[in-house]
């Protein structure tokens, strides 16, 4: 049977799919995965998962991200700023910082 293998480089990071191994059971899958997927790249941990146990939904079945225009999510409205507007933004930011500082000072 086929076991999908997921490798984690450092503690706390995601386990990322890196390939698979053929093995009769979990113990042998872990044994083989160490050599096949954990030996030549930095590895902190490996997961082995029976291929049959993985649920999949693909682009044929689902419209990932929906079908209507949601480009507002990308905040691309800011990409066409001209220089004058950039100055205005910078000024506004520094005013805001001054105000923050003043209010922080007031609290002391």
């Amino acid at each position: 049977m086929i076991w999908e293998v997921f490798r984690q480089e450092d503690a706390g990071e995601y386990h990322t799919h890196c390939g698979n191994v053929h093995a009769p059971d979990r113990e042998m899958a872990k044994l083989f995965a160490q050599i096949q997927h954990g030996r030549r790249k930095p590895t902190n941990s490996l997961w082995v998962v029976p291929k049959d146990e993985i649920g999949e939904v693909d682009a044929e079945e689902a419209a990932f991200g929906g079908t209507t225009d949601k480009s507002y999510r990308w905040v691309m409205g800011y990409k066409d700023l001209d220089a004058a507007f950039a100055e205005e933004v910078a000024e506004s930011e520094s005013e805001q910082e001054d105000a923050d500082r003043a209010s922080a000072g007031g609290d002391d």
């Binding site: 191994v21 053929h22 093995a23 042998m28 044994l31 083989f32 050599i35 096949q36 030996r39």
Partner: peptide
């Protein structure tokens, strides 16, 4: 016998 056993013994 299999690719996996081949690699394990080579290792």
């Amino acid at each position: 016998p299999t690719l996996e056993s081949d690699l394990a013994l080579a290792n």
